[in-house]
C-alpha cells in the first residue's frame, strides 16, 4: 500500500489543471465587449460631470471674487469721496487763513514773507501773495494735520520781529524741492488712483485681467472690449481660429 503525502497530492492536482482549458460560449466576448463599451461611455460621462463641476466651482469662485472686489471698490470710492470733501474743506480753511495772514502782514510789514505760505509754496513773497493765490489753488491740496497747519499759519509777530530778514528773504531751496516733490508725488499717485479706481467693472475686465496674466502674447487667446459698463468679445486666438480687432489707425 502506498501512502500519498500532502505535497504529492497537491502536485497531482496541479498537474491535472496544468494547461487545461474550458470552452467559453460564443457570446462571451460580445458580452464583455458590451460591458467595455458601457464602461467607456460611463467614463466619458464621469469626465463630463467632473468638467461641469469644475466649471461651476470656477465660476462661483470668480463670482465670489468679483463681489468681494466690488464691495472693496465701493468702500474705497466712499473713502475717496470723504477725503476729497475733507480736502476741499481744508483748502477753504487755508485760503481764509491766508487771506487773514496776508492782510495782517501787509498792514504790519509789507516787506516780510508769510511763513505759513512757505510750507506750501516757498518762493512766494508777501507782496505776491495775492497774485499767486490762483496758482496755489490750481495745485493739488496737500493733506496736513489740522494743528500743524494752523500753527504754521499763525502769524507770530514776536517771531517775525526776531527773524533775520536775510534768512527769510533767501528762498529755502531744500524746502522748495521737498514741497515740489511732495506735490508731484501727490499728483502722480492721484493719476494712479484714478487708474485703479477704474479696476474690474465687469466680466470682460476680469477675463482680460486673467488672460493678461496667463497669456503673454500680443494677440491674446481672448480679449474683451470694456470701454463702457458692458463688455463684448473682440478677439479670439485659438491656434487655427484667430479673430482680432481691426487695428485703429
Amino acid at each position: 500500500m502506498q501512502h500519498i503525502q500532502d505535497k504529492e497530492f497537491d502536485q497531482r492536482l496541479r498537474d491535472q489543471f496544468e494547461n487545461s482549458e474550458i470552452e467559453l460560449p460564443a457570446s462571451s466576448w460580445s458580452d464583455l465587449e458590451h460591458v467595455l463599451h458601457l464602461q467607456k461611455k460611463r467614463g466619458a460621462l464621469y469626465r463630463r460631470r467632473w468638467l461641469v463641476a469644475a466649471s461651476v466651482l470656477l465660476l462661483s469662485s470668480l463670482g465670489a471674487y468679483m463681489s468681494y472686489y466690488a464691495s472693496h471698490q465701493v468702500i474705497s470710492k466712499e473713502r475717496l469721496a470723504l477725503n476729497t470733501s475733507t480736502r476741499q474743506e481744508r483748502s477753504t480753511v487755508v485760503e481764509n487763513k491766508e487771506k487773514v495772514i496776508t492782510e495782517r502782514v501787509d498792514s504790519n510789514n509789507p516787506d516780510l514773507p508769510v511763513r505759513g505760505r512757505i510750507s506750501l509754496a516757498p518762493t512766494v513773497e508777501v507782496g505776491k501773495a495775492e497774485s499767486e493765490k490762483s496758482d496755489i489753488e490750481a495745485q493739488p491740496v496737500i493733506p496736513m494735520k489740522e494743528e500743524i497747519m494752523l500753527s504754521s499759519l499763525q502769524p507770530s509777530s514776536d517771531i517775525a520781529r526776531h527773524v533775520d530778514n536775510k534768512t527769510l528773504y533767501k528762498p529755502d531751496k531744500l524746502a522748495f524741492l521737498q514741497a515740489s516733490n511732495e506735490i508731484s508725488l501727490e499728483t502722480d499717485s492721484g493719476v494712479e488712483d484714478a487708474d485703479q479706481q477704474r479696476g474690474i467693472r465687469n466680466v470682460g475686465d476680469l477675463v482680460n485681467y486673467v488672460v493678461d496674466k496667463v497669456d503673454k502674447r500680443a494677440e491674446k487667446i481672448l480679449k474683451f472690449k470694456t470701454d463702457d459698463d458692458n463688455s463684448s468679445l473682440i478677439a479670439i486666438n485659438i491656434g487655427m481660429l484667430k479673430l482680432n480687432q481691426k487695428k485703429q489707425k
Binding site: 489543471f17 487545461s20 482549458e21 474550458i22 467559453l24
Partner: peptide, 9 residues
C-alpha cells in the same frame, strides 16, 4: 479568445 479558456479554469 487566446487566453480566456485558460483563465476560465
Amino acid at each position: 479568445k487566446q487566453t480566456a479558456p485558460k483563465m476560465m479554469v
